[in-house]
């Protein structure tokens, strides 16, 4: 597949200000695409954590690429708080819309169905709801007695960005059981995907593989990027490098440490494959 674009080609198709949906670090996050966005010098991006953000968010925020985020959390997991996120929030340069995990899934499911909103239980009494004028509480019209319930408006991201183990020659992408990524891809205008490898044939013609597939209908472009999730892990293909993430968390406490990290690990273009 010598004619596939690389991640830097894909990053050039993402305009400044775009709304990008990203999976959590542990679930097919594309470090390769995030690095390419930073190399491109992307600005004013809006990030949607599906449903949370971590290392990928922190890299983009630290690089000055982000104006606004909507997420249910930002955390580096065992490595602790996300230092560039915390710094940017305190400095006031980052708009944050707090959500809760199932609300983000619900917003994408609404977009996937092409409906303007879907209801969701819970949330009543939470200050998250109090700070979300875009979320509405109605009285359940089907209940015999008063029953307040929250309506979550659809979110249509401009792009869904993730890294999959493989794509096929027909342009389909395999994410296995991570079906919330399929919803993310279905909801977005298009999915931009980095992959470890490309396999022959059409997975939709294979009853065993098809249930884990995102149809090429939703895929805007695919880039070949072996180890494109590293230092995060990729399913059962390779584990996360916990020492790297912990070292990042320490370095990124200072602006200088973060700049040094970018120079070492991000700014160099990846080796051609």
């Amino acid at each position: 597949m010598a004619d596939l674009p690389n991640v830097d080609d894909l990053a050039r198709t993402i305009p400044d200000g775009a709304l990008l949906a990203l999976p959590p670090d542990h679930s097919l996050g594309s470090v390769a695409l995030v690095h390419a966005l930073i190399r491109r010098g992307a600005r004013d991006l809006r990030l949607l954590g599906v449903p949370v953000g971590g290392f990928l968010f922190d890299l983009l925020i630290g690089a000055g690429a982000v104006a606004e985020i909507e997420t249910s959390a930002v955390s580096l997991g065992e490595a602790g708080t996300a230092p560039r996120f915390t710094t940017a929030l305190a400095a006031g340069g980052l708009r944050l819309r707090d959500a809760t995990c199932p609300a983000i899934h619900t917003a994408l499911q609404a977009a996937e169905k092409g409906v303007p909103f879907l209801p969701l239980r819970g949330l009543l009494g939470s200050d998250i709801l109090a700070h979300r004028p875009d979320w509405k509480v109605i009285d359940n019209p089907f209940a015999p007695t008063p029953d307040p319930i929250v309506l979550i408006p659809a979110i249509q991201p401009d792009f869904a960005l993730f890294h999959a183990p493989f794509a096929d020659q027909a342009g389909n992408v395999w994410v296995g059981r991570r079906r919330d990524l399929a919803t993310m891809a279905h909801a977005a205008r298009e999915a931009l995907v980095s992959v470890e490898r490309v396999i022959a044939g059409d997975m939709l013609e294979d009853e065993r593989l098809a249930p884990g597939v995102i149809s090429g209908v939703y895929v805007g472009a695919i880039a070949l990027a072996p180890k494109g999730a590293a230092p995060l892990g990729l399913l059962d293909e390779y584990p996360a490098d916990a020492e790297h993430i912990a070292a990042y968390a320490r370095a990124a406490r200072s602006a200088a440490g973060f700049a040094d990290y970018l120079a070492r690990f991000v700014q160099r273009a990846p080796a051609l494959t």
Binding site: A73, V74, T100, C101, L120, G122, I128
Partner: peptide, 9 residues
């Protein structure tokens, strides 16, 4: 870090 799924769960 943020509320994760707590507001629902």
């Amino acid at each position: 870090p943020g509320s994760f799924g707590s507001a629902f769960m």
